[in-house]
Write a protein that binds this DNA or RNA. Structure first.
Lengths: 225, 225
DNA sequence: AAGAAGCGATACGGATCGTAGCGAAGAGAT
DNA sequence: ATCTCTTCGCTACGATCCGTATCGCTTCTT
């Protein structure tokens, strides 16, 4: 249902060494990986809602206490998987053209959110944030802020190119670009289809760009077809 | 923490008749209200996460079974409160100016989401949607679609005024306008401050409007200050 | 007054939670 | 090979909440 994607490994160990018997990866690191893998599998089946510490323990062949020695509960466990995924996501490459970079950036997010565990896990964690400040802090610093920082780099590149006007509020730009994506994921349930990124960027770009023909004269507005 | 707002009543019975002894409101309707009121109070304290059917029953002075005879669980109970709030929200009035209407429309949402139970309840329900199709359907038809329909009216008004170009994709416009708001509520945790609506509308408006001076020549772009 | 509907109370079995205590097994050092 | 420290498995709890079944009383309706 959530097929593994090229951007990160959903299966066993993506490291180059397939099975270095024992001492290379310490004992602790090995059980870590077994637990996280079981967590991924259960998350793929039923999302965060169906995730239980006892279920993970059973699936991983591990004692429940072993899990509680590492994480505070199922939310942190899911977050650990999410962070692991986020850190494997590739950065936005320099394409020479700022608009193309923006589309590519948003589109990558649309794809990863709509077709991997990431979307499902985020969906399941959102409700836990207000009641768990530590979880919320970790989630925001290690997941949300990641994309924000990446966008900042992209914007600075576009500004130095002369494509984007200086002094852009990156936070607002981030919300404008990704708000619609998460709106679909979390609220409306509308499909995260292929054209979404282009349409969002087309709509927002005039507010970011220095004035130019592609903005004021073009037809990149919100319409059908 | 979540003060009652003018747009809907957080307290007992907002109906004109304060206390018509018994037969006016049927027995069933009365216990309904007692339960919903207890639900509101508990939601205000700890959100959906801290809401339990047993807690509501105790607070309402009602048997647990009585609640299960009406709703399927705590999620539906919270949704009932949410729907009740949504239906009391006033519609977007005709202000003569489309941009002003948009700002007013988004700003009303920002206020209600940031300072009433509505935001907190939505935050708590989001994670339950993927695992409960019936709940998701009700949530989308009776909460999400509500704003969408209202925006449609607003857009049609603006189009017939000549402010907005014809053929606007209302769904995308809705996502562009409210995506950033929910992004703050659900993900980033950034404050839902007063200027947000204006800045979002200013950024998106060029994509909606017929070409004109306020779009191509103005300074309504994304910047600081 | 009589039937119907609504409600309270109690009692369950079940799933998870999160913690405690103890003994066994792995891993590195001498 | 033995010793020592870390890590882990196992079992056993008390606790909360779930959702359901049953039964008898109270309140409406006619």
């Amino acid at each position: 249902m959530y097929p593994s994607s090229p951007t990160y490994g959903d299966d066993a160990e993506p490291d180059p060494d397939p099975l270095e018997p024992s001492p290379a990866r310490s004992r602790r690191a090995r059980t870590d990986e077994v637990i996280l893998q079981a967590t991924r599998e259960l998350l793929a089946q039923g999302g965060v809602g169906a995730l239980t510490v006892e279920g993970v323990a059973a699936r991983a062949g591990v004692a429940k206490t072993t899990i509680y020695r590492r994480w505070r509960g199922r939310e942190e466990l899911a977050l650990a998987v999410l962070i692991d995924m986020v850190e494997r996501v590739v950065v936005a490459p320099d394409l020479g053209d700022t608009r193309k970079e923006l589309v590519s950036f948003v589109d990558a997010a649309v794809k990863v959110i709509g077709s991997t565990l990431m979307g499902r896990v985020m969906q399941g964690l959102v409700s836990e944030l207000p009641g768990d400040p530590a979880l919320a802090r970790a989630f925001r610093e290690r997941v949300v802020a990641k994309r924000h920082a990446e966008l900042r780099r992209l914007v600075e590149r576009g500004t130095s190119r002369g494509d984007l006007r200086p002094g852009i509020d990156v936070e607002l730009a981030n919300e404008l670009l990704f708000g619609p994506v998460y709106y679909r994921l979390l609220l409306s349930g509308a499909p995260l289809d292929a054209g979404l990124a282009t349409r969002v960027v087309d709509a927002v770009y005039p507010a970011l760009a220095t004035r130019g023909p592609s903005v004021t004269a073009g037809d990149d507005r919100i319409g059908r077809g």
